[in-house]
Design a protein around this nucleic acid. Sequence first.
DNA 1: AAACTGACTAATA
DNA 2: CTATTAGCCAGTT
Length: 103
Amino acid sequence: MSASYEKIYSTVKRIPRGQVATYGQIAELSGIPRQARRIGYALSALDDGSVVPWQRVINSKGEISERPFADLQQTLLKKEGVVFSKEGRIDLTRFQWKPGQRT
DNA sequence: AAACTGACTAATA
DNA sequence: CTATTAGCCAGTT
C-alpha cells in the first residue's frame, strides 16, 4: 500500500468515538487540502484487519456515501451515540469532530 | 508514459 | 430540493 494513505488513516483514527468528520476535513488534517477524494479512495483500500474507524468519515452533507457497506456504517455510528435524522443524515453542527477537542 | 478512476466539495442554475 | 460543471491529484491499469 502507499505511504500517503498512512497519514490519512492516522487522522481518521484520531476521530473521537461518537463523532464524525468529513472527507475534506480529514484531508486537511492529514496535510493534503482539497484531496477529499483521496480519503475515500484510501479508505476503500482498507482491508478487513484494519483498525481504522472508517465509519466516522462521511461526506460534507452529513450523509454516508453510497456504497455496499453504507447501512452497516450507519449502524456502527448509531452504536457510538451518533444520531441520524429520518433521512439518514447526521447533524454536523452537533457531531462533527472539532480537532483539539479533549476527550 | 498516458489515460482512467474515484467513500468528495463547492459553486451555479 | 435536483442537476451540471469544474477543481483536485495519487493510485491503478
